[in-house]
Design a protein around this nucleic acid. Structure first.
Lengths: 206, 206
DNA sequence: CGCATATTTGCGTGTCCCGCAAATAGTGCT
DNA sequence: AGCACTATTTGCGGGACACGCAAATATGCG
């Protein structure tokens, strides 16, 4: 059952993660103290560290949640769907609600995007972000093993698939953020990345 | 030219990274203070932070160097060699000198391996390690772009290849470390991982 | 040899992260 | 509702880290 206790805890966690991201995007990573984040949520600084073991972890927490949902989404896909189709769809589903960009009011949209970009450039965050990806990747590998009837303990296959899929998403995202003004729609980039990977990334003929 | 100055700097850097790894492997990450590492190398604690901006970065520094060498190695491969063969070979070359395991005297070998395993499990290090991988991946992507005549700015292809190759190495390594007593030789695992990736990771027929 | 430039060092500061124990808040039972 | 039980929050204190700054030291070069 979902007691008040659990819900409140989840809410606090989400609020802290959210606040951490917002403050960082607008002020820059090291102009935000843990104290600020805690205050923004109305909680003591000590409590912050009950939820997250570092500022960076808090900021990466939403990325982690989103990545974990991909693994869950894969498990929901029909079992007879071809693996790479299912993976692509599972990845695409996580975008329907869109990255955190969506939730922002359009007025300061440009500033927000710029802030996020700066945030993602912060070395201290990159590591934590990648770690979150790795954690989710393990989940994804488990789901792949289940679906393909392979064995996590003896076969590299499920981990390779999970890693390749994560990479496809990451590269598509990076390409999306880096590319200039009228970027290709993210859906297309992701679909494209997955199909290239599933094709074995052959060297372009020349 | 390689002045005395530069060489000494490189040596200090390597010594610090090396000492950081050794101490961490034998005592555990948070039983090692920066002061200890500095002292082991005969340098002031403040100097440590002139070379590395964190303890974790120092520990990951050798991994970074090794990963960067893979990109350099790819550039050395004959231009007419098929891409995936070249990539596989470039990755394999980095193992000839072996991971840091090699340099250890055989007596405490088992303890050393155990220590490394524990070290790699440390969350604080995983992030930094992954970040190093990402940095090297960018180099690798550039090398791939060069070799295949693709454009980093407009094509996802080189980044996808670099990411897939990094993933192949990482998964093979992980498999090697995780698997039990008589593990398959690492060379075989890497070769195998690369060929699976280059084959597009098709779902196993069943 | 001695000047110009890098590098190392010591010191001070602000922050972080966590252990611990007291206070507070929800949960379940009668 | 009342009450005991467990989970969570909070304040306090400590140890360590990372870095700016300026003085001291080492290196390279004419």
């Amino acid at each position: 059952m979902t007691g008040l206790r659990e819900r409140k805890k989840a809410e606090t966690r989400a609020a802290l993660g959210w606040a951490a991201i917002h403050l960082t995007a607008e002020r820059g990573y090291d102009n935000v103290r843990v104290e600020d984040i805690a205050e923004a949520v109305g909680v003591s600084p000590r409590t912050f560290n009950n939820y997250f073991s570092s500022k960076a972890e808090a900021i990466a927490s939403r990325h982690l949640d989103r990545s974990l949902r991909t693994a869950a989404a894969l498990r929901e896909r029909p079992a007879d769907e071809p693996l790479w189709v299912a993976l692509t769809q599972a990845a695409l589903e996580q975008l329907t609600r869109g990255p955190e960009v969506e939730a922002m009011p359009s007025p300061g949209h440009a500033q927000w995007v710029a802030g996020v970009r700066t945030m993602l450039a912060e070395p201290a965050l990159q590591g934590e972000r990648l770690r979150a990806t790795a954690v989710a990747e393990a989940e994804l590998a488990a789901a792949v093993a289940e679906r393909t009837g392979t064995d996590l303990a003896t076969d590299m296959y499920p981990r390779l698939v999970a890693a390749a899929a994560s990479a496809a998403v990451a590269v598509a995202m990076q390409h999306y953020l880096d590319s200039a003004d009228p970027p290709a729609p993210i859906d297309r980039l992701i679909t494209d990345a997955f199909s290239q990977v599933a094709a074995g990334l052959p060297a372009p003929s020349h």
